[in-house]
Every structure is written in structure tokens, then in C-alpha cells.
């Protein structure tokens, strides 16, 4: 007798497909609607307004440097044409719409990661058994080559943005679970005892003491989740998720160096923006929380 792991997994996916169709459809509709709505919202205002909003956001949470970077970076993503002293000037990569598509996909998959990752992280922090069980699963999710997720994702959710979000979600959730778990476990024993000794319920302990004190660590996890999600963009484009992965994939398939480079550069700009902004939010939360834990 021969045990074939691959066949077993394929059978499992087929079984899921056959028996959970309504659920899978519901998930497809919910995720599809979210990403569609976000995309439309991001493209609703003219691009120059959005560029200004991103710049102001960067200024407000991060620094002037990040704001300047955002202004230049996002402008490069758009097409700019103007006339200077009778001279027609045009520059930019014309990737605005794809960038917003990618942003919508990242935000959707990150929200899904937080929605599922943070509660699991809390549970793992409270329960050693859950911690022990989730640990290898998270390792598996993170080390399995991301391409592999595409196959079952397509089987279960067909082509397009939804399987892209699902594959991204599986790949990007582990740091969110891990760092929520770690953050809560790191809250000082005395602070927890103090909260209990004044008669906190478990819920009050969690929401008034543990989560606020773990917040900087949790935000560091969210930062990693966002960046991992961004690293899935090109891979997700292979199954028609659209966005900035598209020009890259096109560049590969047609050996067009220019298009591939522009797509890659756009991803880098978006990555730096998201990284600096989410990091700055984490640091802000950290200055009020971590200063006194020593």
C-alpha cells in the first residue's frame, strides 16, 4: 500500500469544494464586495487629491521626510503632463489605477488577517495548548512556497482577486498571530496581578490592560503582515488578481524589461510608504506604553 500525501491533499480540497459550496460562495461574495468597494473608494477622488491625502497622512503619523517621499513617489506612479514655458513635459509611469487595485487587495487581506489573526493570537497567549498547536501550523503557513497556495485557492475560489486575497491572507497572517501572542505574554506579571487584585473581570483585564500594553508589539506584527501581503502581489497576479503584479508578469512573459521595472518600482514605492506609516503608528503607541515598563 502506498500513502500519497499529495493525492490526499487534493482529495481534501475536492471534498471541501463539493461539500462547502454555499460557504465558499459566501466568502467569495464578501471578499469580492469588500475589495470592489475599497477599489472604487480609492479611485473615486482624482489622483492628485489622493496623492495629497497620502502625503498629509505620512506627514501626520510619520515625518516630513516620509511625506516628501510619498509626494514624489505617488506622483511618479501617475501620469503627469504639463506645459512649461511653451514646452510640453510628460513623466510618470501611469500605474495609478493598478496601484490602487493593489492597495485595495492589501488592505482587504490585511483586514482579514487582523480579524482572524488577533483573536487567535489572544487565545494562544491565554492557553498553552493552543500556543503549542498553532506554532507548527504558523511555521507551515509561512515557509510553504507561496506559489503553492495559488492552486487550491483557484480550485476553491476560481480566478481573480478573491483567491488572490485568500492566498495572501494565508501567507501574511502568521506574524500577526505570533506578535499578538508575544505582546500579551510580555505584559508584566505585576500589572496583570494588579488588574486582577482590583477586581477586573477577564474581559476588563484583556481590554483595559493586556491589549493596550501589548499594542506596540501587535502593531509591529501588523506592519510585517502588510509587507508580507505586498510581497504576494506579483504571485497573486498569476491568477488574475490584477494590480501592480500585472506589469511585472507581463514583463516576464514578453521579456519587456521596461514594463517589468516600472511595475517593480511601483511596488517598492508602495512598500516603503506602507512600512514607514505603519511603523510610525507603532512607535507612537510605543512611546506612551513602553517607556514605563522598565
Amino acid at each position: 500500500m502506498r500513502l500519497d500525501l499529495g493525492d490526499a491533499f487534493a482529495a481534501l480540497i475536492e471534498w471541501l469544494e463539493n461539500n462547502f459550496e454555499p460557504l465558499l460562495d459566501a466568502i467569495t461574495i464578501a471578499i469580492g464586495a469588500t475589495i470592489e468597494g475599497l477599489e472604487q473608494a480609492l479611485l473615486f477622488l482624482p489622483s492628485w487629491v489622493m496623492i495629497l491625502l497620502f502625503t498629509l497622512l505620512a506627514w501626520w503619523v510619520a515625518s516630513r521626510g516620509v511625506a516628501a517621499f510619498s509626494l514624489i513617489g505617488f506622483t511618479l506612479l501617475e501620469n503627469v503632463e504639463f506645459t512649461l514655458f511653451g514646452l510640453d513635459v510628460a513623466f510618470g509611469m501611469g500605474l495609478w489605477e493598478l496601484t490602487m487595485q493593489t492597495l485595495a487587495l492589501i488592505v482587504t487581506s490585511t483586514l482579514l488577517s487582523l480579524l482572524i489573526g488577533i483573536p487567535i493570537g489572544i487565545w494562544a497567549a491565554k492557553n498553552d495548548v493552543v500556543d503549542t498547536v498553532t506554532r507548527p501550523i504558523l511555521d507551515f503557513m509561512q515557509t510553504m512556497p507561496a506559489f503553492v497556495y495559488l492552486i487550491p485557492a483557484v480550485v476553491l475560489f476560481s480566478l481573480g482577486e478573491v483567491p488572490g486575497v485568500i492566498a495572501t491572507f494565508i501567507f501574511a497572517t502568521p506574524p500577526c498571530v505570533r506578535l499578538t501572542n508575544l505582546g500579551i505574554r510580555q505584559v508584566s506579571e505585576e500589572a496583570v496581578e494588579a488588574a486582577q487584585s482590583f477586581g477586573s473581570t477577564p474581559r476588563q483585564l484583556l481590554f483595559k490592560v493586556e491589549l493596550p500594553m501589548a499594542l506596540p508589539t501587535i502593531l509591529a506584527g501588523i506592519n510585517q503582515t502588510v509587507l508580507l501581503a505586498l510581497s504576494m502581489v506579483v504571485i497573486a497576479a498569476l491568477i488574475g488578481a490584477g494590480g501592480l503584479g500585472e506589469p511585472v508578469v507581463e514583463g516576464i512573459q514578453q521579456l519587456r524589461i521596461g514594463i517589468g521595472f516600472e511595475g517593480g518600482l511601483a511596488i517598492v514605492i508602495l512598500a516603503i510608504f506602507l512600512d514607514r506609516v505603519t511603523q510610525a503608528i507603532g512607535e507612537k503607541a510605543g512611546t506612551t506604553t513602553q517607556a514605563a515598563t522598565g
Binding site: E190, A191, A194, A195, S197, V209, M213, T289, A292, T293
Partner: peptide
């Protein structure tokens, strides 16, 4: 009944 702790056990946030 309430309690005072050796390393204060204050809530830094």
C-alpha cells in the same frame, strides 16, 4: 481588599 506591589505594577498606558 487591595494590594500594593513591590515593583509598583502600574499601568504605563
Amino acid at each position: 481588599m487591595s494590594m500594593v506591589f513591590q515593583n509598583f505594577g502600574l499601568f504605563p498606558h
